[in-house]
């Protein structure tokens, strides 16, 4: 599904070259659930943006479903994001002036999908995340957990093959965090390729495997069950 080969992402800042990613190679199979961990500044977010086609590698090859996407023009990348990829962010950014249903509908509006089909798919997506009763609520009228579930419904309404989540529970209390993680697990079990960036070993533990980044490189690979070792690695960060 995802094949990264020697991916570099280099920024030039004040004449100095910064390597946010320095030669990352990784293959992720269809339906896998992968957690990306690592300290701040290790390149987690850059890797996620790269995987999500929001950013292009400075060098290296990124093949998505067998197709090289590293050097696609912007219009094509937008199409890939539209059809292949869903994003879930830490701060669950919803468009404040739109109600929940309209937020979920948004990707389909830009994809030019007709009204009737949109309505049906919004209904299904909201049902899938368990917030069908909140369709007419605006973001300000919902709890953090509900908002994140709206965001997940929005990220999956186009039926992408890959769901990218950046600290999906970072702003949630543990009860709604667990709800959201259960939801993601269920989607992963249904065949969605799920990549989660997190600091939280409790979140990472649910993944099939964990990739640990340090200074833009992959420094460790392990199974999700091995996460307790990791907790020792980042001493004191156990949830």
């Amino acid at each position: 599904m995802i094949e990264l080969a020697d991916i570099w992402r280099t920024y030039t800042m004040g004449g100095e070259e910064l390597h946010a990613l320095a030669g990352v190679s990784e293959t992720i199979e269809k339906g896998e659930h992968v957690a990306v961990m690592g300290p701040s500044g290790s390149g987690k977010s850059t890797l996620l943006n790269m995987l999500g086609c929001l950013d292009r590698p400075t060098s290296g090859s990124y093949r998505l479903a067998g197709r090289e996407v590293g050097d696609l023009p912007d219009t094509e990348l937008s199409r890939v994001r539209q059809t292949e990829i869903g994003f879930v962010f830490q701060s669950y950014p919803l468009v404040a002036r739109l109600d929940a249903a309209a937020n979920v509908e948004l990707p389909m509006v830009f994809a030019g999908i007709g009204r009737a089909e949109r309505r049906e798919r919004v209904r299904r997506a909201m049902q899938a995340v368990g917030i069908e009763g909140r369709a007419k609520h605006r973001p300000a009228e919902m709890s953090g957990g509900q908002r994140q579930r709206v965001a997940i419904a929005r990220a999956t309404v186009m039926e992408p093959k890959i769901l990218l989540a950046d600290e999906p529970t970072g702003n949630l209390d543990s009860a709604s965090g667990t709800q959201v993680l259960d939801l993601l697990d269920r989607m992963s079990a249904d065949g969605l390729t799920l990549i989660v960036v997190t600091h939280d070993p409790g979140v990472a533990r649910r993944a099939d495997r964990i990739v640990v980044l340090g200074d833009g490189r992959i420094v460790r690979r392990m199974a999700g069950s091995q996460v307790t070792d990791l907790a020792r690695l980042f001493s004191g960060s156990e949830a």
Binding site: G52, L54, D74, T75, S78, R79, V80, R81, Q82, T83, F87, P93, V95, L106, P107, F110, A111, R154, A155, M158
Partner: peptide
């Protein structure tokens, strides 16, 4: 600006 980023992330093209 964040909204624009969000729309772009969900696949909105520049022209849109």
């Amino acid at each position: 600006t964040p909204e624009v980023g969000l729309l772009r992330a969900m696949g909105a093209r520049r022209r849109q």
